[in-house]
Each structure stands twice: as structure tokens, then as C-alpha cells.
Amino acid sequence: MTPAGTAIHQFLARWDIHNPALVEALVDCAKPASYEKASVILRAGDPATHVGIIRRGLVRYYYSSADGKFWNKAFYTEGDLITAASAGLTNSPSPFTIEALEPTDIVLMPYDRLAELQQSFAELGELVARMITHAFIRNERREAMLLTKNAEQRFQRLLTEEAHLFRRVPQFHLASYIGIDAVSLSRIKRKLEN
């Protein structure tokens, strides 16, 4: 099986979908893409035309302002699906940027072809619905955490639920992700170490 086929097969298996014909149809429309560290995969304001599965690497989603400030929305690693879903589903510009934080290999599949395949494969439409539900719940929990928890509680949540990020994501990006600055994050880490 090709690297793209393996990535697609493994991704579908994570969602308990085991249809070889669907894997083959997705592989037929997939194309590999590679990005260097700090490369933009999708820029805010651009249309989201593809969905990607990360084969290797790490990406961040972030919002930015005209004066250069940024706010990290999410991080994704191997086996994760990436896209600007709201932009792809509504045919509107991406509200955020997707950037490679490490050298990253992705399997890209076009939205229009995926929409066509949903007509032939019911489980693909069901998968989309399940993934939207999963993303909604994740985003709602993150919103609640940012709005109702103090900085130390947000850091503790990060340690508990996304500890893998500490090995790969720079501290200033993690600080932005939990809504604090890097100095505050260092202070919290020192406090908890003592």
C-alpha cells in the first residue's frame, strides 16, 4: 500500500470504518504534499479547497491581527485530519492560518471530490457528521476552559489532556494556546515544580 493509502486506511480505522473500496476511492483523489518547518499550509483569507491527513509532522492553527499578534487555536500531529472546516463547508475564506511547526507530510484530498464520494459511500457522510460533532464538542470544552478557568487550571488541563504537546511545541505557542503570555507560563511551571 502507498504511504497515502496507509495514512487514509489508518485514519478511517480510527473512526471504525473498514471499507477497502472507500480507501481506494480516497487514494485515487489524494495527492501528497510536503511542507518545511514554518511553511504556511493554508493562509487566513484563502479558500479551503482540501482536507489533509498528517502523515508526519506537527501543525498549528492560529488567528492573527494586522499588528502581528497571534492566538493559537489548535495543534495537530500524525494521523490527524486538518482543514478549515467552516471555510470548506461554506465555500468562504479560511478564518485562520495553518502552519507547519515541523517538517510535515500531508495527504491532501479535494473537498469537491469528497462531496461526490459521499453520494457513493454512505459511511463517508456519516464520518463527516461524526467529525463535526467531535470538533464541536472539542471547541466547546476549550471555550469553557478559556472562559471559566484561571491560568494555572488551564495549564493543568494542558498537562492532563494534551501532555504530548510539551515535547514538540515551543513554550510561547503553548502559552498562547491557553490564553496567557510566556512569562506567566514559566511562572506557573516554576510554582508547580516547587
Score class of each variant (00 low, 15 high):
S94I: 08
T160Y: 15
R130I: 13
D46I: 02
L101R: 02
A122G: 13
G79C: 10
D112P: 05
T97F: 06
I54C: 11
L185V: 08
P110Q: 12
A100V: 12
L117A: 08
R157S: 15
A151K: 06
A100S: 14
E152G: 06
L185G: 07
I106T: 12
R43Y: 08
R43K: 14
Y111L: 15
L101G: 02
R142F: 00
A87M: 03
V169M: 04
N150Q: 07
L146Y: 00
P95Q: 03
H164R: 06
Q171C: 04
R157N: 15
L147M: 10
A115R: 15
N139T: 12
M145K: 13
R154D: 13
L185R: 01
P95I: 05
L101W: 00
G88S: 00
K69D: 12
E161P: 00
Q171A: 07
E78N: 13
E162M: 08
L127I: 10
A87Y: 04
V169L: 02
F136N: 02
L127F: 09
T97K: 01
V107N: 10
Y62E: 11
G125H: 06
E99Y: 08
R167T: 08
R157I: 12
T77L: 03
L146C: 09
L89D: 12
L174K: 09
E126A: 10
L81E: 09
R154H: 13
V169Y: 03
A84I: 05
V169P: 05
I53M: 12
S176M: 01
A74D: 15
E152Y: 04
D181G: 00
R154V: 12
H173L: 02
E102C: 11
L158I: 06
R56P: 04
Q171V: 07
A182T: 01
M145P: 10
R142H: 11
L124E: 15
